[in-house]
Amino acid sequence: MAYRSDDDYDYLFKVVLIGDSGVGKSNLLSRFTRNEFSLESKSTIGVEFATRSINVDGKTIKAQIWDTAGQERYRAITSAYYRGAVGALLVYDITRHVTFENVERWLKELKDHTDSNIVVMLVGNKSDLRHLRAVSADDSQAFAEREGLYFMETSALESTNVENAFKQILTQIYRVVSKKALDIGEDPAAVPSQGQTINVNSNDVTATKKVGCCSA
């Protein structure tokens, strides 16, 4: 069985970090998983990966987070990692308007490669650079509401809202998944994209509920 782990968790959720190059995806990930930030980080080539567990309603939820290279050319490789994702943090840089304009293209990218139930959070990063703001929080909020996305502004540098953003998206995923499990009478096999249904050759890690045959 794939994705066994020796640590204990109730749910394992795969989340992807997407958005234009240089918006701070890797630093959001390192802030959340290791509480680290680097002004001198290298650009991401291909994909990076990290995990962290949090507690929601007494359940341990493990997030398996894939950080992807932002440059368009890399989508040839990175889009394979969207498959099976139950959550996405779509990141833009509040000081570069073009990265916000490109959000729609990223949404389309998600639509093309993921399940329609995926929980998406729009994240305006670099909120510490107040004097250079080029995207207003109101505009983003309105956009997010229109598109049915969650929204939050973060600063990986100052560690503002990073924890909240990840916690909120993981909690929402948990609500969706546990509601689904409830709707279908706790039949683990019916939880979408469960362990056994992992596609050959894909990198699917999804809402793998740790019960019955699917537990590690």
């Binding site: 080539i45 291909g46 994909v47 394979a80 990198n203 699917d204």
Partner: peptide, 13 residues
């Protein structure tokens, strides 16, 4: 294969 590791996870770079 069992752990679903494929080379793009480590060898692209």
């Amino acid at each position: 294969e069992e752990e679903m590791i494929n080379p793009s996870m480590y060898a692209s770079q």
